[in-house]
Amino acid sequence: MRFRFTDTPIDTGAARRELLDVGAGGYVSFEGWVRNFNEGREVVRLEYEAFQVLAVSEGERVLAEAAERFPIRRALCIHRVGALELADMAVWVGVSSAHRGEAFDACRYIIDEVKHRLPIWKKEHYRSGDSGWVNCERCAAAPQHAHAHAT
């Protein structure tokens, strides 16, 4: 159960080979690609930045959780950092297991948790020439007051 970063294109063939296991009857993978639009804006390229030490430990926690929840054989997640162009692969998740159901379920669990929990940030560069950190720029104008509501 490994999580790692790379600043070069993800080699999916090599990644898949790490999951080979004679006890596995199936394998599921997910690829996240750079898309040309987000929230109504035309995106031309991306940058990913990560707090890698914590992201790797949290990523390996996610993979361990997936292995606890689902009877899988092996799992691997690789995330890009640095500058990416449209259609580049940003993240790859692969899972092998005895039967297909748990491989699908575990793969979905891993990508969902990785997106929500790991300290990884994405800066979008737009056709219009400006740029912004996803989830950070718009919400800054409307901060939540969790403290004031907590009694």
Binding site: Y48, A50, F51, L54, S57, H116, P119, I120, K122, C136
Partner: peptide, 30 residues
Amino acid sequence: KVAVNSEFAPWSRRLAAGDAVVFIPPVAGG
């Protein structure tokens, strides 16, 4: 969120000399 010495930490954690602190803005991996 905040991390102290490369682990997530509560906001009320007592800081000690030499601690490494990282503030974690909303994430967007994947």
